[in-house]
Computed example of a mutant assay.
Amino acid sequence: MSDKTKHNETDLPLSAKQMKFAQLLANPDDRRSRRAKIREVGVSPSTAYRWLKDDSFLEYLNDQIERYTEGHLATAWNSLIRQMKRGDTKAIKLFFELKGKYKQEIEVTEKRKLEDFF
């Protein structure tokens, strides 16, 4: 198998080192410095920083971040619900914003104010 793997059909191939570096950067449990991650991958800092400017690498990195965050949505949602149950008004507002209710309510209220004005 080649050291290069296609990210998807339209992207340029990424090397195994690039993919490993992206995975290390995206992993929220890995709290080491960027420099330590670069050393682990075995490339020069200038090479790693060049990768960070490459669209194909950044797309792969964003995909890796998305995979990590998708796995934690339920945890975040449960935490938000617990905060709401404790009466945290910021959590309640965020909940309604996420559900698309808060903005609509403001728009309806503003529209009613304008109708009353005219």
Rank of each mutant, 00 (worst) to 15 (best):
P45K: 07
K103N: 14
K20N: 11
T5E: 03
K93L: 15
R67Q: 09
E97W: 07
P28N: 01
E40K: 04
P28I: 02
A22Q: 00
H72I: 12
S56G: 05
P28S: 01
F57W: 01
D116I: 09
A22G: 01
Y60K: 01
W77T: 10
G42Y: 03
A16Q: 00
R39Q: 14
E40D: 14
T109S: 10
A91V: 04
S46D: 13
F57R: 03
K53H: 08
L61W: 06
H72W: 12
I92W: 00
L98I: 08
E105A: 15
K4T: 00
K6W: 04
T69K: 08
N8E: 04
N8T: 03
K37P: 06
L61K: 05
R32S: 13
E9K: 04
F96W: 12
T47Y: 06
R32K: 09
S2G: 05
I38C: 01
E105L: 14
M19Q: 04
T109A: 15
T5R: 00
Q104C: 08
R35C: 11
L12D: 04
I38M: 05
M19P: 03
L80D: 05
P28D: 07
N27E: 08
G71S: 03
Y49N: 12
H7K: 08
I65E: 04
A74V: 12
Y60W: 00
K20G: 07
G100R: 03
F96A: 08
K111M: 12
L73A: 08
P45D: 11
V41H: 01
G100L: 06
D11I: 00
S46H: 13
N27A: 02
R112C: 10
A48W: 00
R112K: 11
K99E: 15
M84K: 06
T109F: 14
A26R: 02
A48F: 00
L24G: 03
K99P: 09
T5L: 03
F21M: 01
N62V: 08
E105I: 14
Q64T: 05
K99V: 15
N62I: 07
R39D: 14
E110S: 10
R31V: 15
L14M: 00
L58F: 04
A91N: 01
T47K: 07
P13V: 00
L24W: 06
W77H: 13
K103W: 10
K103M: 11
T75P: 05
W77A: 11
E40I: 10
N62T: 10
K53L: 08
F117D: 06
G100I: 05
R112Q: 14
A76I: 08
Y68T: 09
K111T: 13
K20L: 15
S33C: 08
E66Q: 11
L25W: 05
R67I: 11
G71H: 01
G87D: 06
R35V: 14
A22P: 02
F95M: 14
T75K: 10
A26I: 06
L73N: 08
K20A: 13
H7P: 04
K20V: 12
M19T: 05
A36G: 09
H7C: 03
K101Q: 15
M84Q: 09
D116W: 11
R112L: 14
K111A: 12
W51V: 04
R34W: 15
F118C: 07
F57A: 02
T109L: 14
F57L: 00
S56L: 00
R39N: 11
A76N: 07
F57I: 02
D30V: 05
